[in-house]
């Protein structure tokens, strides 16, 4: 099970990094979103994906799936949502102020 999950994570990271390296603000933000998907999948895979039962004590008697990575990912999902939201609004305001969504153009305005 793990092997193809890791390959998938590799593909997602590649796509995310390529998006992050681009000039368009929306592509950069999408890059961060894809990167967090990749990291969440990596974390849960590392925690022994698919082994054991649902970590609810009343549902089964164990062994349970590892609950710790799940807790970490839950936190990470919420935080990555917060950053995505903030970045989107930042992009919107930057465009409003500078009239561009291209990082290079914005840089030139900033330097002038």
């Amino acid at each position: 099970m793990e092997f193809h999950m890791i390959i998938l994570v590799g593909i997602l990271v590649t796509v995310a990094v390529y998006l992050l390296l681009s000039r368009n603000m929306i592509r950069i933000i999408l890059g961060t979103a894809v990167l967090s998907h990749a990291v969440h999948l990596l974390l849960i895979t590392m925690g022994g994906a698919g082994e054991g039962g649902v970590p609810l004590l009343r549902e089964s008697d164990g062994p349970y799936a590892d609950a710790l990575p799940q807790a970490l990912i839950l936190t990470a999902i919420v935080i990555s949502f917060a950053t995505t939201a903030f970045l989107l609004v930042l992009a919107y305001r930057t465009y409003e102020e500078s009239g561009s969504d291209n990082m290079n153009t914005i840089r030139r305005i900033d330097r002038e």
Binding site: A49, G52, P55, A65, I73, I77
Partner: peptide, 9 residues
Amino acid sequence: FVFFRAPDL
């Protein structure tokens, strides 16, 4: 997450 027994996630 469903496959991996993580309903909350």
